[in-house]
Simulated assay, not measured.
Amino acid sequence: MQYAHLLKNPIHFLSLGFGSGLAAKAPGTFGTIAAIPVVILASYLGHTGFAIATLLACIVGVYFCGYTAKAMGEHDHPAIVWDEIAGFMVAFLWLPISWQTLLVGFVLFRIFDILKPWPIRYLDKHVHGGLGIMLDDILAGLATLAILHALIALGWLGL
């Protein structure tokens, strides 16, 4: 918990996923787990409210993640997981929230975030600062979103 002191700063607290990013192993996975209640709560805003909240999470995330990366002295430190939270929100734009969509969305998002298929990997390596930290997870969220919409349209999620 070398960076636990950062949790006292509200921006770092959010960047570190309410502390979930400080997990000793798999901080990105713990950050995505922390995103689940955020997605559920934001879903009560309706589709438009959810979209606005997601857009705001992405925009402020560029600043939050860049600010915390600078304080930690490392670009995209694994403990910075606001990008996972915002990216996971992207994955649920205009979708019904259910245990099925949350479970499948979680698995898909983690796969895209870990494997970083093209163009996610390219952008992850070539875009720097807060935008670079956020962009790969936003793209992972968009890929997850597309697949979830397709699965729902095909009736494969039992909704």
Rank of each mutant, 00 (worst) to 15 (best):
A69W: 10
A53T: 12
A69N: 14
I59P: 10
L142M: 09
A86Y: 05
G73I: 02
G28S: 03
K8H: 11
V38I: 15
L115K: 13
N9K: 05
D83W: 01
F30S: 02
A153M: 01
Y67I: 07
M89L: 15
L123F: 15
H75W: 08
L22E: 04
H149G: 06
I40D: 08
L154S: 10
I97G: 00
C58H: 02
L135K: 02
L41C: 12
G105M: 05
L145K: 03
I52A: 09
I114A: 13
M89F: 11
P37R: 09
G66C: 05
W118F: 14
L41W: 14
E84C: 01
Q100F: 00
L102E: 05
E84P: 03
L139N: 02
H47N: 15
T48E: 14
F50P: 03
G21E: 00
M1T: 11
Y122V: 13
L102C: 05
W99D: 08
V107T: 05
K8V: 08
G66L: 03
K25P: 06
L154F: 14
A143N: 06
F106R: 06
I52D: 01
P27T: 00
H5S: 15
M134Y: 12
T144S: 15
H126I: 11
M72E: 11
A79C: 13
L131M: 15
I97D: 02
I80P: 07
L108A: 03
A34R: 07
V81F: 00
L159P: 09
E74F: 11
F13W: 15
G141W: 00
G158M: 06
C65E: 06
L108V: 07
R110T: 06
L7M: 13
Q100D: 09
G49W: 10
W118D: 13
L131G: 11
L22P: 00
L56T: 13
K70A: 14
D137K: 01
G17N: 03
W82Q: 04
I133A: 11
I97V: 15
A57P: 12
A42F: 14
L145V: 09
N9W: 09
L22A: 06
A86S: 14
W156R: 14
S20Y: 04
I85W: 08
A150Y: 15
A57G: 08
L103Y: 05
V127W: 02
V62C: 10
L93S: 04
L123M: 14
A51P: 02
F106E: 07
G19T: 04
T29D: 10
S15W: 04
M89N: 00
N9S: 09
G61S: 11
H75P: 12
F106T: 05
V90E: 11
I52G: 01
R121T: 00
K116E: 08
D124W: 04
W118N: 10
T29G: 00
L55N: 08
A71G: 10
H75A: 14
C65N: 11
A69R: 00
L123N: 10
Y3C: 04
P117G: 12
C65L: 09
P27R: 08
G28M: 05
F109S: 00
V90Y: 01
L45T: 06
